[in-house]
Design a binder for these strands. Structure first.
Lengths: 339, 339
DNA sequence: GATGCCGATAACCATTGGGTTATGAGGCGC
DNA sequence: GCGCCTCATAACCCAATGGTTATCGGCATC
């Protein structure tokens, strides 16, 4: 039983297929098969059996899948800890949803790092569906954004710390805005929606609200929600915007709220870590910090589009693509499946 | 980084010496050195440095030592879980101190297994100093007896559940018993003490009480505390006996209590498991059970020397030697270092 | 300064791990 | 019946692991 074998099995268990795991690992499929064969022999359990189309796991296989993740994750954490043991500073790796990153992460993490000297924060952005895997595999210490998806045998500490509301807004000049009357959902859904880069994320409250509708709107993804809001002001479409962010434009009359059934959609942002002593000390520190008045004040403070100050301890590393193969659509050149 | 390397390093960290670890593993010392060299290279940390007499660990090495135990332990647990996943029954491995095993474990575990159908309990006996390693390495799910030694970076759930008292007893015919006056410690310590097979364990309250005395008595180890008690009744020496066990003989006049400073020595028996979700379900079950009135009643019930009934679900596997190389000393033939 | 203890290293060997390509074998859809 | 997808197996390769014995080197201790 080697760590590599456990890693391979965990991936197979998650993907449900040797072929897919081989692709994901960038190795041939017999290599995966061999690793599993070694595990089977070592543990004296078939772990899984072939079914018509794919595999199904034995009881032992399911146990293994849950534990393998844990062991591999611990090994990853170990490698990091040893590497950092010399340096006094602890680096904290945060994964955040696109929306949270854009609207709150900067202020929150700046405040946190200012308050805890010697801390270094690395911010990674990915959709909420990636939260749990990131935590399990120890590629992140804490996840900020929507409540992560529950996964069997993985226990998370989820601390809700910020409410938000999303409302439908549009320019006063927009056709749907002129009447001032309630807008039927069917009508709203037939118009293109302006969104941030991630569209409307499935794991959020607004995502669940949207998917339960009969039809799905065309989403026009812009590089940020603020740009989507600007586009809405320019009359280019409707937007399911954060109430707090749109407030100023609403007051200034540049946007109006559309009266849509089911809105405002209320959601919660949470700080999630591995539970049961598996979270890093820094993660627990930040998880406690997010609920403090100081943190709330920092996130809620209205602010100009703040350029992240140079020399900041917060470093944004990458924007994961919200969906593989989904490029940003330009407003001027709608794609082939556009309106 | 392989599990074997982690195991080796954990042992070296615990024993503080490559040589000792090599002996313990039954391999040559260069093999240990090579394993550590591989780890050092892989983790890019020296892990430890040579000092005049032995080694001392770097910060990274200390981190690694703590985590390595955890990972190796998880892997052990995993191997067991997978093996048992098919069978519905969960087997619970209990490690108990010699004294607890003799006086309370039987009644407790019989009651527990009767109450929880399908459970199977395996009982291992070793001194309290072996509790923490047994739990860490997952060779036991729960430890019953004195509070385990604290080890850095290992968090245990310790639940005290039974008080006991030890008093000094002797036959009424014993020289020290005839006067009825208080017996000075110095006098008592110059007489041989009858004990169970483990002597007076260091990690217990009575052990701590004893080691703080100026001199240590000669211990005459008998195969069980009950036999030691019988020997005391026969006038063969004094004994630091459990008050509850000696009560009957005291009432019957076969034994008298000696008035000794510091006695009765009060101690606590605890049920200890790994904390933070690392304990098995069965272990938590038993840990909760020990504090119930039902469990207390079973343990406190005065009973004849009960032969473990055949077909019992409780299986005692082995008596670890209380001290390496320490054989039971016959009463008739005291050893070369005897009085 | 000679002696020992203890860890590091060298030289060597067998086994395993992890990878490839090529091929086999079973079930599902058409 | 045919192809296709999926996993298993075979044959082969290289590198790493884990083990040995023999030797070297630093540092206490006497």
């Amino acid at each position: 039983m080697t760590l590599s074998q456990l890693r391979t099995f965990a991936l197979v268990a998650r993907l449900g297929s040797l072929h897919a795991a081989a692709l994901a690992l960038g190795i041939s499929e017999p290599a995966v098969s061999a690793a599993l064969a070694a595990l089977r022999k070592d543990l004296d359990d078939p772990l899984f059996v072939r079914t018509g189309s794919g595999i199904s796991f034995t009881a032992g296989g399911r146990r293994l899948a849950a534990r393998a993740d844990e062991i591999v994750g611990l090994a990853e954490q170990l490698r990091r800890e040893v590497g950092e043991a010399g340096t006094a500073i602890a680096s904290l790796r945060v994964v955040a949803s696109p929306a949270f990153e854009e609207h709150a992460a900067g202020a929150l993490l700046e405040t946190f790092t200012r308050r805890t000297p010697g801390s270094r924060v690395q911010l990674d952005v990915r959709s909420g569906s990636g939260f749990t895997p990131s935590l399990i595999w120890r590629s992140a210490d804490i996840a900020l954004g929507p409540r992560p998806q529950a996964v069997a045998d993985v226990v998370l500490d989820v601390v809700p710390f910020l409410r938000y509301q999303r409302i439908v807004v549009a320019s006063p000049a927009h056709p749907l805005a002129r009447s001032g009357a309630r807008v039927p959902l069917a009508v709203l859904l037939s118009h293109p929606w302006l969104t941030g880069p991630a569209g409307v994320e499935e794991l959020t409250e607004e995502g669940r609200w949207l998917v339960q509708q009969d039809r799905q709107p065309d989403l026009v993804r812009l590089p940020s929600e603020r740009e989507a809001l600007a586009a809405a002001e320019a009359g280019e479409g409707v937007m399911l915007a954060l109430a707090a962010v749109a407030r100023e434009a609403l007051r200034g009359g540049k946007l109006v709220r559309l009266d849509v059934e089911g809105t405002p959609v209320a959601g919660l942002w949470c700080a999630s870590t591995l539970s049961l002593g598996r979270a890093s000390a820094g993660a627990r520190l930040l998880q406690r910090f997010v609920t403090t008045p100081e943190a709330s004040a920092a996130m809620l403070a209205p602010r100009a589009r703040k350029v992240r100050r140079p020399g900041s301890a917060v470093h944004v590393t990458l924007w994961s693509s919200p969906k593989a193969g989904t490029a940003f659509r330009s407003r001027a050149e709608p794609g082939p499946d556009g309106p």
